[in-house]
């Protein structure tokens, strides 16, 4: 059952992060392109031992875009014609099931905020998560799969903890 393609769980927004977006400014935002960087790993599929984890949104830059779309939309800050655009370049995206004790997730992406030609924000951010794993693949692989939305949510949490980002989208 493990040696096949699985699909990552769809993202669902974090109400706590939506609250941060509601409380930090009211300018409407639109989302630009989210692409894979040169030499990026894990952007089309993530290898989990003998299984491959596919994105339910086509690829993983699109997963990150969908995650941001949901959080901005829920906060009432998403508008297709907004002057401020948020875009991203994913450079690393991996889940490591580990062999015994700890699994690790890592997502790195550059987030760019622009108003017209002016760049308001341009930073590479890294999110890391860990979880208890198992030697047994039938436990380790499903556990890693369920961890993917939390890794993306953690990336957005890192972004929302950056005062420069919050200042750029006010």
């Amino acid at each position: 059952m493990a040696a096949c393609t699985q699909t990552a769980p769809p993202f669902t927004f974090s109400p706590a992060q939506v609250q941060v977006l509601k409380e930090n400014g009211s300018d409407p935002l639109r989302l630009g392109t989210f692409t894979a960087g040169e030499h990026a790993t894990g952007v089309t599929g993530i290898t989990l031992r003998s299984a491959t984890l596919a994105s339910p949104y086509g690829d993983y830059p699109s997963y990150l875009k969908e995650a941001l779309r949901q959080e901005l939309d829920e906060a009432g800050r998403l508008a297709p014609n907004a002057a401020i655009e948020v875009s991203g370049v994913m450079t690393s995206n991996n889940l490591n099931t580990g062999l015994a004790v700890t699994g690790e997730g890592e997502l790195e992406a550059r987030i760019i905020v622009k108003r017209g030609e002016a760049t308001l924000y341009n930073k590479s951010l890294l999110a890391k998560t860990t979880w208890d794993t198992s030697f047994v693949g039938a436990v380790a692989i499903p556990r890693a799969i369920t961890e993917y939305p939390r890794l993306v949510s953690e990336f957005i949490a890192v972004l929302l903890r950056d005062p420069d980002f919050l200042a750029a989208i006010k």
Binding site: M1, P9, T12, F135, V136, P142, P149
Partner: peptide, 19 residues
């Protein structure tokens, strides 16, 4: 039994709704 997943263990899943 452990390799086959027939060990009475708990398999993690996500039941988050598609909004």
């Amino acid at each position: 039994a452990a390799f086959l997943g027939l060990s009475g263990c708990a398999h993690p899943i996500a039941i988050s709704p598609n909004l």
